[in-house]
């Protein structure tokens, strides 16, 4: 450090070089994390894009998945069964939000916040009051781990393919179509005999199940579950959805490809995060940075529309003047 301080210019270059190296070596890890968070983002896509509901339950149903995973595994349960239980626990969280929204008449965002708050306590209960529980790859035969990144990427990739295939099938069925119609136009859905309330609950169940599954995967990958592991998950999910749309929207029209775009969005997000961290951004400022990026990307379509309307207005004025 002292030597660097003396030879200023060269040292900075050297430092950058080191950081670039660090960036490149951390790329595979970023990709693995990105894919797993991309799975989470597919859950967000179902509520945010298909059902047209911003569901904040995910911030803690993600942790529920992780907590359940650790507790099931450490109690000796089979890994696949553990992941299934994690998925089902997420489904329950979604069910709760769905009931609060449709049967209690609470706006979706608030219903999600209430469930999320409740889940914090529930997750602590699941982990017997501990804020953090280890799940060591040395002790258990896990599917993914930080220590085996290439294998983790492969496993996460297989999960993505299977999940997208299942969702592609589901949203092509009569029930799946009725879910899409519910998100698109509720009046029309009801006029065609679709139970929109039940469909919203169903969508929330499915979404949070997937989110919790992603939580169980991340727990295996990082080797522990943490009470705060899902903090800001909705923002990361939205970021992945939006990046996927902005970058691949023009090429990926098919539903399966669009979901794939979301996962790619997750990977891009994590690569960018790794890059800005390696460029020297304080890790503590990360959430601020994420929120800013998502806010700007959410604003872009709105600004575009405003601009278009302004231009249309001007055109109209010009025509009036001409007449």
């Amino acid at each position: 450090m002292q030597r660097r301080g003396r030879r200023n210019g060269a040292a900075t270059v050297l430092l950058r070089g080191i950081r670039m190296d660090a960036f490149i070596t951390s790329l595979p890890g970023a990709a693995a994390q990105g894919i797993i968070w991309g799975i989470m983002a597919i859950g967000v896509y179902i509520t945010y894009k298909i059902l047209d509901v911003a569901d904040l339950t995910v911030d803690d149903s993600f942790g529920t998945g992780g907590a359940v995973m650790v507790v099931c595994m450490t109690s000796g349960m089979n890994i696949w069964l553990s992941m299934l239980v994690a998925f089902l626990a997420g489904c329950l969280a979604g069910l709760l939000t769905g009931i609060l929204h449709t049967k209690f008449g609470i706006p979706a965002i608030l219903a999600g916040i209430l469930t999320q708050l409740a889940l914090y306590s529930v997750n602590l209960r699941i982990m017997s009051g501990m804020a953090n529980m280890p799940l060591s790859v040395m002790k258990y035969n896990l599917l993914l781990s930080l220590r085996k990144i290439p294998k983790s990427i492969l496993v996460a990739g297989i999960f993505v393919v299977v999940l997208i295939a299942l969702l592609y099938w589901f949203f092509g069925t009569e029930l799946g179509h009725s879910l899409r119609a519910t998100g698109c136009n509720q009046a029309m859905a009801r006029a065609n005999g679709i139970n929109t309330e039940r469909n919203k609950i169903l969508g929330l169940i499915l979404s949070n199940g997937i989110v919790a599954l992603a939580g169980s995967l991340i727990t295996q990958y990082q080797g522990f579950a943490d009470i705060n592991m899902g903090r800001g998950a909705i923002v990361i999910g939205l970021a992945a959805v939006i990046i996927g749309e902005v970058v691949f929207g023009k090429i990926f029209k098919n539903f399966a490809l669009r979901l794939f775009g979301v996962v790619c969005g997750g990977v891009i997000y994590y690569v960018v995060i790794t890059l800005v961290l390696s460029l020297g951004l304080n890790a503590n400022d990360m959430k601020l940075f994420s929120a800013l990026v998502v806010a700007v990307f959410l604003g872009i379509p709105y600004w575009k529309k405003q601009l278009q309307q302004k231009n249309l207005g001007r055109k109209g004025e010009a025509n009036d003047a001409g007449n």
């Binding site: 179509h177 119609a181 698109c184």
Partner: peptide, 21 residues
């Protein structure tokens, strides 16, 4: 439903009053 195709809208209407399976 604006985001759905013409045939998808018709198919939704064709199942009015039926259970969606």
């Amino acid at each position: 439903a604006a985001d759905m195709w013409i045939e998808e809208n018709l198919a939704l209407a064709a199942r009015r009053g039926q259970r969606r399976t």
